[in-house]
């Protein structure tokens, strides 16, 4: 089945079964490997992308349900000011360890900061608890979100 989806501002055509999760379309058909596979069950957040600006789990998003929604992945999150601030804060605070979860963390953090420019610890807990970091970089993720919020103010 042919689908045309908008990914990072570009219309992409793929020919896959409608139940194929967006995750595998991105990774294996569109060669966008920044979005990661961790659990395939909406439990780890490694596959987080934005659909019309909302963070979703690409592993649980059938391609057939995407329609005309705008998909943004880690490869293009730096095209928004908020995304740039998040990436800059991540580098500044040296957030990652193995780095595998970080694309998903950044996608969730960017979505949070987009609608909540000055998040409290509570906001961060709620928005980020769907993203696992097996290396437990949480202390720095929290600090980097606050740092990115600062960058957004100046």
């Amino acid at each position: 089945m042919q689908y045309v989806i908008e990914v990072n501002g570009t219309a992409r055509r793929v020919d896959v079964d409608g139940e194929t999760p967006l995750l595998w379309v991105l990774r294996d058909k569109l060669d966008l490997k920044g979005t990661k596979f961790g659990c395939g069950a909406a439990q780890c957040g490694a596959c987080t992308v934005h659909m019309d600006g909302q963070p979703i789990r690409a592993c649980q998003t059938p391609i057939a349900s995407v329609g005309t929604a705008r998909i943004t992945t880690i490869e293009a999150i730096g095209q928004t000011p908020v995304g740039q601030h998040v990436q800059a804060a991540w580098i500044e605070l040296d957030v990652p360890q193995c780095g595998y979860c970080q694309a998903g963390q950044i996608m969730s953090a960017t979505a949070l900061l987009t609608h909540t420019p000055a998040p409290t610890d509570h906001d961060i807990n709620d928005a980020m608890s769907g993203n696992l970091c097996r290396c437990a970089t949480y202390t720095r993720i929290r600090a980097a979100i606050k740092r990115a919020a600062d960058l957004g103010r100046t």
């Binding site: 966008l32 490997k33 920044g34 979005t35 990661k36 596979f37 992945t73 880690i74 490869e75 999150i77 730096g78 998040v86 990436q87 991540w90 580098i91 040296d94 957030v95 990652p96 780095g99 595998y100 970080q102 694309a103 950044i106």
Partner: peptide, 17 residues
């Protein structure tokens, strides 16, 4: 700082998967 971070935060392919 870890020099891989700029690549990690832009989602560049670097892992086995």
């Amino acid at each position: 700082r870890n020099i891989d971070v700029p690549r990690i935060v832009t989602g560049q392919p670097m892992f086995g998967i």
